[in-house]
Design a binder for these strands. Structure first.
Lengths: 347, 347
DNA sequence: AAACTGCATGCAAACGTTTGCATGAAAATT
DNA sequence: AATTTTCATGCAAACGTTTGCATGCAGTTT
């Protein structure tokens, strides 16, 4: 009795109709009589009929699924973006398939293959920190699968992009540090080939230069990951230098947290001896002591907009060439981990 | 030319074979000649043939997809579980569809319908805090979709379950507080109808009773959510009482963090004036000051095991009735937010 | 009465696979 | 030489939909 789900044919048989009539009834086709429609709809409801998406997908050559590739989801940053994506896609007709590349190019490649095989109708992607080549995304595009890149740029790839102005965020942070009287400002940067960390580094460098502070190579570190432990050793090296910095701009809140941790351990007062600024504004950052000064990014909106753009791109398969580029502005949030006594440098 | 993907038929035509022969060749059917096999496989490789999963799914009445329903993913807890799930399912033949219920029963219901419609082959679920009735999961089971419940129990539902011994974790934490000399131990608990928070509450109560400390109703709060801000007001109420507690056991690290925040603001010293213990051991918890004492849970393993059990259940459709119940032991991690001078209470 | 217009419905093909059964040819047995 | 066996391959149905076209039947027009 309960073998398999109820199909169009089942309904057809019970009503002495053909499957096509049942199909048309459910789709409100004008050529079907009102009574028939009503009868069909009622029975379909009673039997809890649910169209088989695979049959549909086979016929229409689409899966009604969109793929999302992110490096990881344990950080608040990506999980909040995904929440934004979900909130847009969820109510639509599409399903989401979330995939983690674990910051590995090979895994990313595998995932793209898997999603392509699945015939996803579109892809949202933030590339891994190991990805330097974007041909796998181009192959998707050649198969008419639209690609939207978010947060981490893929330079040279022609696609819709939703990014954050990391340069501006870093510039704001460092300029603030300068105005608060810091002169020896270090940078705990991230992996080298990510657009985001590159731009943060550049924002740091330009803010220094603009304010007449010479760049010091020994003040710049390229941390290899984004988690707390990745920041500990570099922070220690930095703070135990002879001529230690009086401020640190970190590539994210985790690394900034490591720096705070090390600074405290060494016996430095924050922010009197050293100012520390992070990036991301994770929810717990304001609960640290001292509360972390950081750069806020509109993560949820970023996820939502990316999803909306993809949805629109899927609907409107024309307009092949004019890709959208959306750049969100981040914002400095000053808390207790950085000095407050601003000098006027407008002159 | 590039219309649609390459199909079995395409390969068949090019090789002057029938689709069935091509299919059998690719599946290493013994009845196919070696040369034919080789020729087919080579061409399939050259054309980058990828079988259409929808055609397959239609035929075999399965989607090769498993659904995951979680209340949210912005906390480290669930995102780490999902990472564990991914690491098990990823290499398998199955795809994962992650869905967020946002702690809402209605959304959970919608998601179950959606996944059922998709013909997922199995479901991993941690119910929302608003869910009291589990018939929607039973309906899945009746459609031969195996369900594995993780972390948050569904009392009365017969299914495989992978849980954490929250009772033990809470008991450990509170007993530790007692042994360290605290006598006025409060509890910032969570929403009332979750198995996890209920068990943590019970562990708290039993640890008190066992140690001869009378329960004080005014020391017990039921916080409505799990985020920082949900804990602020209750923490303030607690700490500004006339007879304020000398220890707080919080339902999770976020709430514990709020308590620390409030305590500091009021001017209390931690742990001299008040000990605070959390639950979850989030990655940043050891970087707070004072570093948070908390109860660690094997989240990643929990995700992995849940996924493994589901996979096995899908493979082995027999053995309907003997469901597995796996309970992980959590572990108290003592850091700086709780007193250390343990007295011997063994006598 | 014959032809025509609507209208409601059914037929059959298609989407890309898999698989039981039939077919055909060559090789091995009688 | 006739039969059986073996081996390699093809045919066709099935999975659950949608959709262009054909069909049939009523009512309306000539």
């Amino acid at each position: 009795m309960k073998k398999g789900r109820v199909t169009l044919k089942d309904i057809a048989t019970k009503l002495n109709l053909s499957p096509s009539t049942v199909s048309r009834s459910l789709n409100d086709h004008p050529a079907i009589g009102e009574e028939t429609k009503k009868a069909v709809k009622e029975l379909a409801n009673a039997l809890d009929y649910q169209p088989n998406p695979m049959a549909l997908g086979l016929l229409q050559k689409k899966s009604n699924t969109i793929g999302v590739i992110v490096p990881e989801i344990t950080s608040h940053f990506f999980s909040a973006i995904i929440t934004g994506i979900q909130d847009v896609i969820g109510p639509s007709e599409y399903n989401i398939m979330i995939c983690l590349s674990n910051e590995s190019y090979e895994e990313e490649l595998t995932l793209v293959k898997k999603l392509s095989k699945m015939r996803v109708d579109g892809i949202l992607v933030s590339p891994s920190s190991a990805t330097k080549d974007f041909d796998h995304f181009r192959r998707l595009q050649n198969n008419d699968v639209p690609v939207v890149v978010f947060d981490r740029d893929c330079p040279g790839l022609e696609a819709d992009k939703v990014l954050v102005d990391d340069y501006s965020g870093a510039y704001q942070a460092v300029e603030y540090l300068v105005r608060s009287g810091c002169t020896k400002i270090a940078h705990l940067g991230g992996p080298l080939n990510l657009s985001t960390t590159k731009h943060r580094l550049q924002g740091y460098l330009d803010a220094l230069e603009k304010n007449g502070i010479p760049k010091r190579e020994e003040y710049i570190f390229h941390v290899k990951g984004f988690s707390h432990k990745d920041g500990l050793k570099p922070a220690r090296k930095l703070l135990e230098m002879e001529d230690a910095p009086d401020a640190i701009f970190a590539v994210n809140d985790n690394i900034a947290t490591s720096a705070i941790h090390v600074a405290k351990k060494i016996g430095l007062r924050i922010p009197e001896d050293i100012s520390i600024v992070g990036f991301d504004d994770e929810p717990h950052s304001s609960y640290f002591s001292p509360a972390l000064s950081t750069v806020w990014q509109p993560v949820y909106s970023l996820g939502m907009l990316s999803a909306r753009i993809l949805l629109q791109r899927i609907k409107d398969t024309s307009a092949k060439n004019d890709f959208r580029l959306e750049v969100f502005k981040p914002e400095l949030v000053v808390r207790a981990s950085s000095r407050e006594n601003l000098s006027d440098i407008s002159g």
